[in-house]
């Protein structure tokens, strides 16, 4: 029995050292990024500021709630401002499987919750520089990931990963992501258009440790072709407060915050 235990321990140590010395592939790095510890549930007030090339700004405020339920993640957003979209709510259920997202919108003027097609993930969100995919709705296997190189960005050692969509009609020909080697958190991302020209740059401006988790609280997306940018700032972030599953229902969409 002792011999059996010794073999197991030796094998485990050998395998561990082997995996530590084996370079990670692009897909493995992206998987580690996706699978790093994250909140079971999160609430935050999101302030999105759109700035055009003349320096004019438009501000959107959204109260958001999200909860990881194992095989699916549910999120709900309540639009606080501007006035013409106030009390509108949007709910999204994302699945770990290949199943498409389920999405609903509640328009207070129509007093009705409507199921909407989730087939528009390339659409820009509320006139911002972020598409629904950019905001985290893209699945790992939607792209082929290749490790290009390693380099230092903002004094952090980073993996540089190129991701190309398996779907040739996708709006980006490729994206390049810089991922911190220590934390497996993306620190910068570049998006290339269908002609392989640089379209947008996503920069992480601030990260905070909240409830022992690293949360990106300030990010900026710059559209270099249109000279337009969008900043997203998260305030009042609360992690793992035990949001009820009942938060993600028609009842809450219509009731509001």
């Amino acid at each position: 029995m002792k011999l059996f235990k010794a073999i197991i321990v030796t094998t485990f140590v050998l395998l561990s050292s082997l995996s530590a010395n084996t370079p990670l592939t692009g897909t493995q790095i992206i998987e580690k990024t996706y699978n790093r510890p994250s909140a079971v549930d999160q609430t935050a007030m999101l302030t999105m500021t759109l700035t055009n090339k003349n320096g004019q700004t438009r501000v959107r405020k959204i109260q958001q709630f999200s909860k990881d339920m194992g095989d699916k993640e549910k999120s709900i957003m309540f639009f606080v401002s501007p006035a013409d979209v106030k009390n509108t709510s949007f709910m999204n259920w994302t699945y770990d499987s290949d199943k498409s997202d389920d999405q609903w919108i509640y328009l207070p003027a129509l007093k009705k919750v409507k199921r909407i097609s989730s087939d528009s993930k390339s659409d820009y969100f509320m006139g911002s520089d972020f598409t629904f995919d950019d905001l985290g709705g893209r699945k790992i296997n939607s792209d082929i990931h290749t490790l290009l190189r390693e380099e230092i960005v903002n004094e952090k050692e980073c993996y540089v990963i190129e991701s190309k969509s398996v779907n040739e009609d996708y709006m980006y020909s490729k994206t390049i992501t810089w991922i911190d080697k220590n934390t497996f958190i993306g620190v910068k991302k570049e998006f290339f258009d269908e002609d392989e020209e640089l379209l947008k740059i996503l920069k992480i401006k601030k990260m905070e440790e909240i409830s022992n988790l690293y949360i990106i609280t300030h990010s900026e997306m710059i559209n270099v072709q249109k000279d337009h940018s969008t900043t997203i700032i998260l305030n009042n972030v609360n992690i793992n407060t035990g949001i009820s599953e009942n938060k993600f229902t028609e009842r809450m969409m219509t009731r509001g915050i």
Partner: peptide, 9 residues
């Protein structure tokens, strides 16, 4: 009823 099938509601 409402249902989404292949991107069509």
């Amino acid at each position: 009823f409402g249902a989404e099938i292949l991107g069509v509601v």
